[in-house]
Write a protein that binds this DNA or RNA. Structure first.
Lengths: 325, 325
DNA sequence: CTGAAAGCGCTTACAG
DNA sequence: CTGAAAGCGCTTACAG
């Protein structure tokens, strides 16, 4: 018996010693059958191309270790099994609960996720999240923060080096949400945004930045959406004699490690994968323990701004100094 | 009954129809208990920092999909559970077989892997691989191929932009094996190699390449070991007026997609993750079907050279044209 | 080709 | 606090 009923210290110790000696491990299949719980969590991972596997892996690591901390294991399922995969997992009683990663706006797994009868947490925000527990970064807030930070420094002509929205068709909607945040804040702050689609490599950065430098009125602030953009963009700006933090203000979305090792360390909005995972796993375990119902709502992790050296005030224009809010 | 004994077409069809109608799924715990097989493969994944998760994810995707193709599922285990994790997996009968990724030279999981009593395949080549099935890229061959290709074009002064060997201490040994290949071939071809340790970002590439350009006798060929090096290195070379394929020959190790979208598409040795996974899974399934014993040997996937535009002949030196072998 | 018994190794209730 | 029965949903032999 494992922990369910009271036991005298004497026999407990005796049993524990024998377990140790014999190297006893309970048979998981028998436990699952008799106890009707598997102690396994199904993790549905997107292995499509065009997804940043570095961040997916960060999530997997965090989720797996949090699961083990509560004596759960992780069953890895690829997203391309689709809705039928989810049915199989719970139909065959392969797991007690599910986590779906990279859930898109119109995800065909949403309806079956709702009717599965086991706890489910989504990472991402679908259009119709009604009744589902969803956890994600607040990408819209991140976009707003970037614009606000630039506007606070007096910038009114801003370029957004954007992820191609076409490349993410039908996938996760974080780039759309970020951009929506940028646009809302731009309107609110009465600031100009020029969006330039860019691939995150040196030659495309070169192309796009030359385009940007030709713009009139001149751009003084830059928002980088793609997490691989900072290295090539910083390099190209320096090649053109524009030092981030002195000649042009740069802010964006990327891992801290990258931001810090740039020639000019970049101000970023932080995406804490661990915090998203912590919340997702916490609500999953609460559902498994029947502490909360299996229906839930959207839980957005607020962004936090990390100021480094890539931001500067907007230069005076025509002798007029921008009012700083 | 699923497939084990003969059955009349009539009843078969009747049963299949009912299965369909009722949405029947066999209970995996009961199957495991009664059949003493789980149809689950344990996959032990390294989530340490300093590992390229892009390639790890490529392996996971390939392994998971090949497993599903034979009706196996994947249990995800993090490498930091160590040897005890392996014992737990088979002790609790959570899986029928194991795959260990990123196995290092002196891996403390090796001895227990040998005594586990279930089929195991390692991805990587430990020092003591005796009796274990190991599959990996032939990194040594890759290193040799790079040097041979340069030497064939007449280059005798070659720089290796290398991964810091310290950063991989106690981890997988592929960078050591690549470098060993480079050194062996250099000796064999009587060619000079200067190794320069580099981090794969634009500013470190800049530092290292300036260092390289100052070398005497001048370097005419470049080997890139780090798969993230090609973009920044190509950029820095062009900044210094050296066009790969015209002024300097460049070859290296990186994904095809990256090599092809560079300003000068780069000649590379190809690392086919899918081929490594295919072989690993093939031998695993053969073991599971008792077609081969659970003891095995090292299986290295040969590299294949993909020529693109980054290579040129060595320039004539002092009026003397190098003899081409 | 088909039926029906035994048993896989546990957990859960039910007695003591 | 402890013992012993029943049963979880299958697979595997063993009969017919």
């Amino acid at each position: 018996m494992s922990g369910k009923r009271s036991i005298s210290p004497a026999t407990r110790e005796r049993v524990e010693r024998v377990i140790e000696e014999l190297g006893y491990h309970p048979n998981s299949g028998a436990q699952a059958l008799a106890g009707s719980r598997t102690n396994i969590i199904g993790l549905v991972v997107p292995f499509r191309p065009n997804i940043d596997m570095t961040v997916i892996a960060e999530f997997m690591a965090e989720i797996a270790s949090r699961a083990r901390a509560r004596d759960y294991d992780i069953l890895l399922v690829t997203a391309d099994e689709g809705p039928a995969g989810l049915r199989r997992l719970v139909g065959r009683s392969l797991c007690d609960a599910l986590i779906l990663m990279e859930v898109g706006s119109e995800d065909d797994r949403i309806p079956v996720a709702k009717s599965l009868g086991v706890p489910v947490v989504l990472i991402g925000v679908p259009q119709d999240s009604e009744g589902l527990h969803c956890v994600d970064f607040d990408f819209q807030g991140a976009g707003e923060t970037c614009v606000d930070e630039l506007a606070d420094l007096g910038h009114t002509e801003i370029a957004l080096l954007a992820i191609d929205p076409e490349s993410k068709k039908g996938q996760a909607n974080f780039s759309v949400r970020f951009r929506r945040g940028v646009e809302r804040a731009a309107q609110r702050r009465d600031v100009d945004i020029r969006a330039l689609v860019m691939e995150p490599n040196h030659s495309d950065a070169s192309r796009v930045i030359e385009q940007m430098l030709a713009l009139d009125p001149p751009v003084t602030g830059l928002i980088l959406q793609h997490s691989d953009a900072p290295d090539p963009v910083t390099a190209v700006l320096l090649e053109h004699g524009r030092t981030p933090g002195a000649d042009i203000a740069v802010i964006g979305l990327c891992p801290d490690a990258l931001a810090e090792r740039l020639r000019v360390p970049m101000t970023t909005v932080q995406q804490q994968a661990s915090e998203v995972c912590r919340r997702a796993m916490e609500t999953l375990f609460r559902m498994l323990n029947h502490e909360i119902p299996t229906t839930g709502e959207v839980d957005l992790v607020p962004v936090s701004l990390v100021r480094r050296s890539s931001m500067n005030r907007a230069p005076a224009v025509n002798g007029y100094i921008h009012a700083i809010s």
